[in-house]
């Protein structure tokens, strides 16, 4: 049953606007429509200047992370009825905090990716692989870091993290999760290097256990748990 949905979007065009401001749109939408569908409807039929990122539109590419009713979510995973749009409540859409706004809902992800690269997100192994086969890993060893392999680098966690907002150089939960994926991988030998990066002032010890990251993650990665495991690993191995 299609209903009228009111949407408030934070708009900002660096070439025209001095500061960001809200604009309100009314859209006809079905309760099972996704927020991304609502954005598309606005862009295609009402205001072509609305700018946002999207790609796969089904929750695996991580392009459309944004603040929906104050919380970081993927626009293609949130349904209109999830945020009360079908009950007449206003839907508020803003870009994520902690990132410089480039335009409308598009934020500058470069610093985010620099921080990701700084923790060496690739397998480090100083021995050659066995000639006859791959580097063997048991199912149990694979289980250990299973959760942190799921990161899609959407930025929802880092964008929800108060120390990340406070800056300036905290690597952020996403970088720590991706470091965890390799640190606890039994085939990897680069734990010492990554731990020493994460042990510095802008590493894991900026985390204040706020838990916003775990709440925000669209892949249900237990981010806080991963960070705690790294801190304990540092403590017990000093």
């Amino acid at each position: 049953m299609a209903t009228q949905v009111t949407v408030k979007i934070l708009r900002y065009d660096p070439e025209k606007d001095k500061k960001a401001h809200f604009e309100t749109y009314t859209v006809e939408a079905d309760p099972l429509d996704r927020i991304l569908d609502v954005l598309n409807s606005i862009k295609w039929y009402q205001d072509g200047s609305l700018t946002y990122r999207r790609s796969c539109a089904h929750g695996v590419c991580g392009s459309d992370a944004m603040r929906i009713n104050g919380r970081n979510r993927l626009a293609c995973k949130v349904l209109v009825r999830d945020v009360g749009g079908d009950a007449g409540k206003k839907i508020q859409i803003e870009p994520m905090l902690g990132f410089r706004i480039l335009r409308d809902l598009v934020v500058d992800m470069d610093p985010f990716f620099e921080k990701y690269k700084s923790i060496k997100p690739y397998l480090i192994n100083y021995e050659d692989a066995p000639a006859s086969s791959e580097r063997y890993q048991s199912a149990e060893d694979r289980e250990i870091f299973d959760e942190t392999t799921k990161c899609i680098l959407c930025g929802a966690c880092s964008g929800s993290c108060p120390p990340y907002w406070a800056g300036p150089d905290f690597v952020g939960p996403a970088a720590i999760v991706n470091a965890h994926r390799f640190i606890f991988d039994s085939r990897d030998q680069g734990a010492a290097e990554r731990l020493s990066i994460l042990g510095e002032g802008e590493g894991v010890f900026r985390c204040r256990t706020v838990y916003n990251c775990t709440d925000a993650c669209p892949r249900n990665i237990p981010v806080t748990k991963a960070i705690e495991q790294i801190r304990r690993a540092m403590l017990y191995n000093r």
Partner: peptide, 12 residues
Amino acid sequence: HPDPVARTTRRW
């Protein structure tokens, strides 16, 4: 999930 901290002291 096995506890990663307890198990990963091998190839560090």
